[in-house]
Amino acid sequence: MPVLSRGKHRNPRRGACFMEMASVLAGERWSDHPSCTHPLLAQLARQVNDNTNDADRQHLVHLIPSVVGRRGDADTWLAVAVAVATTAILDVPETRQRALAGGLLQAERLCAGHPGREPVRRQARAALDSVPGAVAWVDQLGLRNPISEKTFARLCAPTMVRCAVEGVVTTGRPDTDRRLRSLLEAGIAACPAPEPEPVSSVVPPRSSGARPA
Score class of each variant (00 low, 15 high):
residue 4 L to C: 01
residue 5 S to E: 03
residue 5 S to Y: 02
residue 5 S to L: 08
residue 5 S to Q: 12
residue 5 S to K: 06
residue 6 R to W: 00
residue 7 G to D: 06
residue 7 G to L: 10
residue 8 K to T: 15
residue 8 K to R: 15
residue 8 K to Q: 14
residue 9 H to P: 02
residue 9 H to D: 02
residue 10 R to F: 12
residue 10 R to Y: 08
residue 10 R to N: 09
residue 10 R to E: 11
residue 10 R to T: 13
residue 11 N to H: 06
residue 11 N to D: 12
residue 12 P to S: 12
residue 12 P to Q: 11
residue 12 P to F: 12
residue 13 R to Q: 13
residue 13 R to Y: 10
residue 13 R to S: 13
residue 13 R to I: 09
residue 13 R to W: 06
residue 15 G to T: 14
residue 15 G to S: 11
residue 15 G to H: 10
residue 16 A to D: 06
residue 16 A to K: 04
residue 16 A to P: 00
residue 17 C to W: 00
residue 17 C to N: 05
residue 17 C to Q: 03
residue 17 C to L: 04
residue 17 C to S: 06
residue 17 C to D: 00
residue 18 F to N: 06
residue 18 F to W: 08
residue 18 F to M: 09
residue 19 M to C: 08
residue 20 E to A: 10
residue 20 E to L: 09
residue 20 E to H: 08
residue 21 M to R: 14
residue 21 M to Q: 15
residue 21 M to E: 15
residue 21 M to A: 15
residue 21 M to W: 14
residue 21 M to H: 15
residue 21 M to T: 15
residue 21 M to N: 13
residue 21 M to Y: 15
residue 22 A to K: 06
residue 22 A to V: 10
residue 23 S to I: 13
residue 23 S to D: 14
residue 23 S to F: 11
residue 23 S to H: 13
residue 23 S to L: 14
residue 24 V to T: 13
residue 24 V to A: 13
residue 25 L to C: 03
residue 25 L to N: 02
residue 26 A to Y: 01
residue 26 A to E: 03
residue 27 G to E: 09
residue 27 G to H: 04
residue 28 E to Q: 02
residue 28 E to M: 04
residue 28 E to C: 01
residue 28 E to K: 03
residue 29 R to W: 00
residue 29 R to Y: 00
residue 29 R to L: 04
residue 29 R to A: 02
residue 30 W to S: 07
residue 30 W to R: 06
residue 30 W to Q: 05
residue 30 W to I: 07
residue 32 D to I: 02
residue 32 D to T: 03
residue 32 D to H: 06
residue 32 D to S: 08
residue 32 D to Q: 04
residue 33 H to R: 03
residue 33 H to Y: 00
residue 33 H to T: 03
residue 33 H to P: 00
residue 34 P to R: 04
residue 34 P to C: 08
residue 35 S to T: 12
residue 35 S to F: 13
residue 36 C to M: 08
residue 36 C to N: 05
residue 36 C to V: 09
residue 37 T to L: 01
residue 37 T to Y: 00
residue 37 T to F: 01
residue 38 H to V: 12
residue 38 H to K: 11
residue 38 H to A: 14
residue 38 H to L: 11
residue 38 H to W: 14
residue 38 H to C: 15
